[in-house]
Amino acid sequence: MASGDGMMDRMAPPRVTRFTAPPTRAGRDQERLGWMLILPTILVVIGIAIYPLLESFRLSFTNYRSSRPDRWSYIGIENYKDILGDSTFHTSLWNTIVFTASSVALETVLGMIVALTIHSNFKGRGAVRTSMLVPWAIPTVVSSLLWSWMFHDNFGIINNLLVDLGFTRFHMFNWVGDPSTALFSVVMVDVWKTTPFMALLLLAGLQVIPEDVYESSRVDGATKWQQFWQITMPLLKPALLVALIFRTMASFRVFDMIFVMNGYNTSTMSVSVFAHQELMAKQRLGFGSAVSVIIFVCIALMVVGYTRMIKVEEQ
């Protein structure tokens, strides 16, 4: 990688130019070569994403069960009607919304505090930034196990510390098992895992704000607090929006963490866990596929918003 100036450019999405067919021989050759080079990727995308997606869509109109693969029929939109009346689905949807809203909100606020802190110059700043890659690099399953262990009712460090501090009601308290704190526990794990990522995204946004903007407002006598709301926040808005929608998409589909920490338990069940239970544990491929189609549509809408926002540039 070359100089520092190119860095932001490299992070920006590729500029895509609209095609105007060059009627030359070289143009035709380039067209053929282009298609040859993207062909393997196209095959993968079609074979492992688009075709299964269409198949999911088709299955969602059937009463297919993996336990009796030979006897099934198309039942129209029955599955979708059933989902609307399914109380477990309602619970899982509510859990997902609570999970997404609280973890994204906490990650953003904490991420902002961390980003502002490490944005300033101090000795060892590089080491702190590197340490933030640790939660990000740890596999989600491992993070869930680490926190399950810390949250352990009997031997967990968290209850031990709380009791030491005088909160004796946490003696043997089962964080993940107790329905009142189960969702909170998984949110904690997600916040731990993702705050550093959020902070680094926001830090990148902070670093492109030119220092002289602050300089001139300082001359005008603005306080730090005013500078934050009048300069930092407006200029950071694009980076913040991208990070927010990106995190919302990821949280909305949460599966690993919840499944590892609490299985199919309804106290923490997300829509993805609900879909997985229907598809795999209950083997209701038709009904489960309808749930996954609903999840797909929700995520797809967010993806459209996201790609709009980062604008794959067209000239």
Binding site: A49, P52, L53, E55, S289
Partner: peptide
Amino acid sequence: PGIAIIGALFT
């Protein structure tokens, strides 16, 4: 989202 296709991919 992987969850959208696991049922179909399974078959």
